[in-house]
Design a protein around this nucleic acid. Structure first.
Length: 280
DNA sequence: CTGCGGTCCTGAAGGC
DNA sequence: TGCCTTCAGGACCGCA
């Protein structure tokens, strides 16, 4: 899933490749995925690429913004020359290394003949044009305001399972299923523990491991596992899938103790843990 | 506040 | 071989 490390990897890539380009026109192939008015950003120059949680935003020089949410299956691809938009590898599910592909929903054409393709197999994602960037309510994990004090306050007053709370974007911005499972594994905390039952030492440990997992994900430029569609804007895959600690590890031996990892459901989502290392 | 189920959508996987 | 059903899953919404 595209989570903080995946979106941040895209942001960094676009910050290096898209800034100062002028948007020429927008081609909307899936009307339901687009909100706002094109006219606010047409002929405007890109000034900066922003991110809030899992939301990616292109800022334009006239202070209008185009925000994107990739949800489950979104991809952002960038072809420096759209006359030969050949990516290094076939793009997952787009079944081609040329764009547009059959999952391309919106295309941003730039005046230097480059193009940005917003692909989304499942059509859950969206693009919004507005005078403010879209932001998550919770504090972003990489924000300076994401302190231990904030984390403790945001998390420890609820009886919901800690894993569900970690993924609550109104509390913490950017954590999805992969990094929630891996941080809890690293912190040796069972995902079903009631959040308010965690003591100070456990909360501190978990806080550290969240930063650890997110930063490791970012170091590997995100996760592009078999069933995931995420790739960088040039079509390159992330490598964090080779470093999963718990996510999708059910049925395999725990890398710490050798016990067979298990799967359960929490909040309707697949949850992966070691029954020995992560005691209830 | 909390949880639960439905909704959006499509390809993969499983059953027969 | 091929049709049909089921499932996953981020965010949101209505309901109990």
């Amino acid at each position: 899933m595209p989570e903080l490390p995946e979106i941040e990897s895209i942001r960094i890539y676009l910050q290096d490749h898209l800034v100062s380009k002028t948007l020429q026109r927008i081609e909307i192939l899936e009307q339901n995925m687009f909100v706002g008015e094109e006219k606010h950003i047409i002929h405007q120059k890109v000034s900066e690429i922003l991110r809030s949680g899992k939301i990616l935003t292109i800022k334009f020089e006239n202070n209008y913004f185009a925000s994107f949410h990739l949800k489950l299956s979104g991809q952002i691809l960038y072809a420096p020359n759209k006359d030969k938009p050949i990516f290094k590898n076939p793009i997952p599910r787009a079944d081609t290394n040329k764009m547009p592909g059959k999952t391309t929903r919106i295309i941003l054409h730039f005046s230097d003949n480059s193009a940005l393709y917003f692909n989304d197999m499942r059509k859950f994602g969206w693009m919004k044009v507005s005078e403010k960037p879209e932001v998550v309510k919770g504090v972003d994990v990489l924000d300076a305001n994401f302190t231990f004090e904030y984390f403790k306050k945001a998390v420890s007053n609820t009886g919901r399972p800690i894993k569900v709370v970690l993924m609550d974007q109104d509390k913490i911005g950017g954590i999805g299923n992969i990094y929630a499972n891996d941080s809890l594994y690293l912190a040796k905390i069972h995902p079903a523990r009631k959040a308010k039952s965690l003591n100070d030492a456990e909360l501190k440990h978990l806080y550290r491991e969240i930063l650890h997992a997110i930063k490791e994900g970012l170091y590997y430029k995100g996760s592009s596992a078999k069933d995931e569609l995420y790739v960088l804007p040039d079509g390159e895959k992330g490598m964090y899938q080779h470093h999963f600690k718990a996510y999708h590890k059910h049925g395999t031996a725990c890398i710490n103790c050798g016990t067979i990892m298990e799967r359960m459901e929490l909040g309707g989502r697949g949850t992966f843990f070691c029954p020995k290392c992560q005691k209830l």
